[in-house]
């Protein structure tokens, strides 16, 4: 089934900003991101968020990891990616661990990763709601923590970034438990 023709142009409402030190970098980033298919817009950052030049790129904040990876790959320099809403909390870094006997579950934000304590094999991922999460679930299950792809490397969204925090903590816990 072909998607319907887009008659009405979407008003973009992304919730995130990429900040730069130079206007030229902002324009280059916009070009690279647009060409890859991201919906983006050149905007002036709010005064309280200005950290260098007066031009920023508005993005869908949920797509932060994929956008950062693309800009890094293309060597486009940027300062940071931040939420537009002033007063928004920092990205959540804290993790919680639940011991299920033979398995450990590591929780970061809305994402959970569970691995076998003995073998280090990922047995489950759960939580989240972005489209890359079911994909990452399929890519991680039954793989060793040391051999599985990092969610941050193959995912695109903030849910993937949270899963990566859980993955990273899982690696630390598993390798720590194996040291004499």
């Amino acid at each position: 089934m072909a998607p319907p023709n887009r008659k009405q142009k979407s008003r973009f409402e992304g919730g995130g900003l990429v900040l730069f030190t130079a206007v030229r970098e902002a324009m280059e980033a916009q070009r690279v991101l647009k060409k890859t298919g991201y919906l983006v817009k050149l905007v002036a950052p709010p005064a309280e968020l200005r950290r260098g030049c007066d031009l920023a790129v508005e993005i869908n904040l949920v797509e932060k990891p994929g956008i950062e990876r693309l800009l890094d790959h293309r060597n486009v320099a940027y300062l940071s990616v931040i939420p537009i809403k002033v007063g928004t909390s920092e990205l959540l870094e804290v993790v919680k661990v639940t011991d299920f006997g033979d398995w450990l579950m590591v929780k970061a934000g809305n994402m959970k990763l569970t691995f076998d304590k003995e073998s280090g094999v990922v047995v489950n991922t759960s939580g989240g709601g972005c489209p890359d999460i079911p994909y990452l679930h399929a890519e991680l299950i039954s793989k060793l923590l040391t051999e599985a792809p990092r969610p941050r490397d193959i995912g695109f969204t903030l849910c993937a970034l949270m899963l990566d925090h859980a993955f990273e903590e899982g690696c630390i816990l598993w390798q720590g438990a194996r040291q004499p």
């Binding site: 928004t88 909390s89 959540l92």
Partner: peptide, 17 residues
């Protein structure tokens, strides 16, 4: 519950705890 968050990755730490 977090009025400022636009995604669960940005919830306030004390709410996550």
């Amino acid at each position: 519950a977090d009025q400022g968050a636009t995604h669960p990755a940005y919830i306030n730490r004390h709410l996550f705890d």
